[in-house]
């Protein structure tokens, strides 16, 4: 993919959270939550961002919708020929940005205001961006309710979130994200709070709507099995870095980074006949507080060698067919 085709292009994205800052005292150390990410997302594809808790995947998502300020780096997004630099949004660009980029959150119990009706929740982007009059908004919201499978819409329009089940709430959240026809939607673990039988229908709904409405997704999840179904490409994050990236099946079938391998072999398999290869790495993920300049995975890596300790974190390299790996030892 050349850079001009990409819908989203992230260059050297960083987010540092200051620690122990006080009154009139500069912080002395930082959590490197996101530490130099480079990736691009083509229109119509779905990039899965996977990693354990603390890997920086959710922070990345929040940076891309500007829920957090970007410490350094660039995020370029291109909509209808207009290129936005998300880290430095001008007032005029800001409007386009809010229309084109939306987010679906993890917890459908937290992401809907309990005191607002389903109509007010879904119409919120229309209301705050002054799109259409009240009747237009009602019709648009009803259309969306139909689209996400909550029909007939008139029975849902003026209910409150507590009258709906978890799955229905997540459908409402999806409708809210899609109501202004966004081009790029960041989905932060939208199914992790849902039960299996409901999860699949939400996954399929998101896929169908993505194709139908031409939405590009960044799908954030800790669950590799879900990522397999929800993304065309996969990026594996570890301590604020992407360690491996490539076509989903390619990464899952032929993982190269020792961390990806470990992650894959640790996923429980719903088949008692299956014997998994044992996980080779030990310990848990730590916090990336002022990391020393060496491979971030050094402490836990079964392949760790001197080269990994002496050099900074390895760059992502193409190992053929756009399968990128950040490791000195593969």
């Amino acid at each position: 993919m050349t850079s001009s085709e990409a819908l989203v292009r992230v260059e050297g994205l960083r987010k540092l959270f200051p620690l122990n800052a006080g009154f009139l005292r500069a912080p002395t150390s930082f959590i490197h939550a996101v530490d130099g990410l480079d990736f691009a997302i083509a229109p119509g594809e779905s990039l899965g961002l996977v990693g354990e808790s603390g890997s920086g995947k959710t922070t990345t998502g929040k940076l891309l919708v500007r829920l957090l300020d970007i410490t350094a780096g660039h995020v370029f997004m291109q909509f209808d020929g207009q290129v936005l630099d998300v880290a430095r949004l001008q007032r005029s660009d800001s409007k386009t940005f809010r229309r084109k980029v939306q987010m679906i959150f993890q917890d459908p119990y937290e992401s809907l205001n309990p005191r607002r009706t389903i109509f007010d929740t879904i119409a919120e982007p229309l209301q705050v961006q002054n799109i259409g009059n009240v009747l237009d908004q009602q019709e648009r919201v009803a259309e969306l309710l139909n689209l996400v499978g909550l029909s007939p819409p008139s029975t849902y329009l003026f209910r409150f979130p507590h009258e709906l089940s978890g799955g229905q709430r997540q459908r409402v959240a999806i409708a809210r994200a899609l109501v202004i026809n966004p081009a790029f939607v960041i989905a932060d673990e939208p199914t992790s709070m849902l039960d299996v039988s409901i999860r699949t229908s939400i996954m399929q709904l998101m896929q169908n709507l993505g194709t139908q409405l031409g939405v590009t997704y960044l799908y954030i999840t800790h669950d590799l099995a879900v990522a397999r179904y929800m993304s065309t490409r996969l990026a594996v994050m570890y301590l604020g870095k992407i360690v491996e990236m490539g076509a989903t099946e390619e990464v899952l079938q032929r993982p190269q980074h020792p961390y990806t391998k470990a992650l894959l072999s640790a996923v429980p398999v719903p088949d008692p006949r299956w014997t998994r290869t044992p996980v080779e790495i030990k310990g848990g993920i730590s916090k990336p507080i002022d990391p020393v300049p060496r491979c971030r995975f050094y402490d836990r890596c079964p392949l760790a060698a001197k080269v990994c300790e002496d050099n900074d974190h390895p760059p992502l390299e193409d190992k053929g067919s756009e399968h990128y790996v950040a490791c000195y030892r593969v």
Binding site: K62, V65, L67, K95, R98, R99, V101, Q102, M103, F105, Q106, D107, E110, S111, L112, N113, R115, R116, T121, E124, P125, V128, Q129, A173, R176
Partner: peptide, 23 residues
């Protein structure tokens, strides 16, 4: 999270305070 969602929807500070926090 619904406050974050309102921000992503394009809501201003005043919108969030008046429509989400105060109610």
């Amino acid at each position: 999270t619904y406050v974050e969602a309102a921000w992503v929807a394009g809501g201003s500070h005043w919108h969030i305070i008046l429509r989400h926090i105060i109610p």
